[in-house]
C-alpha cells in the first residue's frame, strides 16, 4: 500500500516536470490563440497547484476514474479496460511459457549436470542477451513471413484465435526471461542437491524421483518463485515493446503512444496500474513463500 502511495506521487510528479505544455498540443496549430489555451487549461485543471491536482487525481483514481484522455477525449478507464484483456492474456501466456520452460530447463540443467547442464547453461547465457525487439524481428521473419505458421500482425478475436495471434509476441517477450529464470532455478536446485539433508535422503534409500520432488524442488521453490514472480510482474512493463513490434492494441502500446503524444492522464493511469500489478504479484509471491517454508511463516507471525 505504501509502495503504491509513493509510486502515485512519483508518477504524478514526473508528469509535472516533463517539458512541453499539453495545452498547446490540445488546441493545435503552431500559434494557438491565448483565449483558447486558457479555456483548455481551465477545463483540464492544468493551472492548479501540484498537491491540489494530485489529490483530485488520486481521489478519482481510487474510484477507478482516471480522468479524460486529452487525445481521445474519452474516459481513461474505458480506454484501458478495452485493451486490458489483450495485455493480460499476453502477459499470462508469456508467464506460463517462462515458468514452464525456465523452471524445466533449470531443473534439467541441475539434475543432469554433466550432460544437459553444460548445453543449457551456454544456451541460456546467449538467450539472456537477446532483447524482445530483436526476437520479435527474428520470430516474424522465421515463423510468420518465412514459414507462415503465425500471423504477423494484430491480436485476433475469440480465445483460440487470440492465443494463435499472441503466440509469437508471447515467445518474443518470454525469450530472455526464460533464460533468466532457468539460470536462477539451476543455481537454486543445484544448491539443494548438494545440501546435507539430500544426503540423508539418499542414505535412507529414497528413490531419486522422490528426492527431486520432496527434498530438492520443494526446498528450491522459494527463490524460484520469487524470481518468477518478479519476472512476471516485470512483464507488464515489457509488453510495451512486444505490443508495438507486433501491432497489438494493448495497454503497453497505448502507453507508448500516449507518452509520445503527451497524453498525461493515460500515462499516469497506466503507470499506476503497472505498479499496482507489480505490487499485487509480489504480494502473492510472498504469500506463497510463507506457505511453502514453515520457517518464513514463523518469522512472519512474529
Amino acid at each position: 500500500m505504501t509502495t503504491l502511495g509513493v509510486a502515485s506521487v512519483v508518477i504524478y510528479g514526473a508528469m509535472f516536470i516533463v517539458p512541453g505544455d499539453p495545452a498547446t498540443l490540445l488546441v493545435g496549430g503552431s500559434k494557438p490563440n491565448p483565449e483558447a489555451l486558457a479555456a483548455v487549461r481551465r477545463q483540464f485543471h492544468l493551472d492548479d497547484p501540484f498537491w491540489q491536482s494530485y489529490l483530485r487525481w488520486l481521489s478519482g483514481a481510487v474510484r477507478g476514474d482516471f480522468g479524460v484522455s486529452l487525445v481521445y477525449r474519452s474516459p481513461v478507464s474505458d480506454l484501458i479496460a478495452s485493451r486490458a484483456l489483450t495485455t493480460i492474456l499476453l502477459v499470462a501466456y508469456a508467464a506460463i511459457v517462462i515458468v514452464i520452460a525456465g523452471v524445466g530447463l533449470g531443473v534439467l540443467a541441475a539434475w543432469k549436470e554433466k550432460r544437459a547442464g553444460v548445453v543449457i547453461t551456454m544456451a541460456t547465457t546467449v538467450m539472456m542477451g537477446a532483447p524482445t525487439f530483436v526476437m520479435a524481428v527474428i520470430f516474424v521473419a522465421v515463423f510468420a513471413t518465412g514459414l507462415g505458421w503465425f500471423p504477423v500482425f494484430g491480436a485476433g478475436s475469440g480465445l483460440t484465435d487470440r492465443l494463435w495471434h499472441l503466440t509469437l509476441p508471447a515467445f518474443a517477450l518470454a525469450f530472455s526471461w526464460i533464460a533468466y529464470v532457468a539460470q536462477v532455478t539451476r543455481a537454486a536446485v543445484r544448491d539443494e542437491i548438494r545440501s546435507e539433508h539430500v544426503d540423508t535422503a539418499h542414505a535412507r534409500g529414497v528413490p531419486e524421483r522422490l528426492i527431486l520432488r520432496r527434498h530438492v524442488l520443494r526446498n528450491a521453490s522459494g527463490p524460484i518463485l520469487t524470481v518468477s514472480g518478479l519476472t512476471v510482474a516485470g512483464l507488464f512493463a515489457g509488453t510495451a515493446v512486444a505490443e508495438q513490434a507486433f501491432g497489438i492494441n494493448g495497454i503497453g502500446a497505448l502507453l507508448v503512444e500516449s507518452a509520445a503524444k503527451q497524453d498525461l492522464a493515460i500515462v499516469q493511469a497506466i503507470s499506476l496500474v503497472l505498479v499496482a500489478a507489480f505490487v499485487v504479484v509480489n504480494m502473492l509471491v510472498d504469500l506463497c513463500n510463507a506457505l511453502l517454508d514453515p520457517r518464513a511463516a514463523g518469522r512472519a507471525a512474529r
Binding site: S195, E196, H197, D199, T200, A201, A203, R204, G205, V206, R214, H215, R218, N219, L292, D293, P294, R295
Partner: peptide, 18 residues
C-alpha cells in the same frame, strides 16, 4: 532403505527443514 541406518553429525542440516 532396509538393512542399514545412518545417524549424521548435524541433525539440523541433515533433516529437511521444510
Amino acid at each position: 532403505a532396509t538393512r542399514v541406518g545412518m545417524i549424521f553429525q548435524d541433525p539440523r542440516a541433515h533433516i529437511n527443514p521444510v
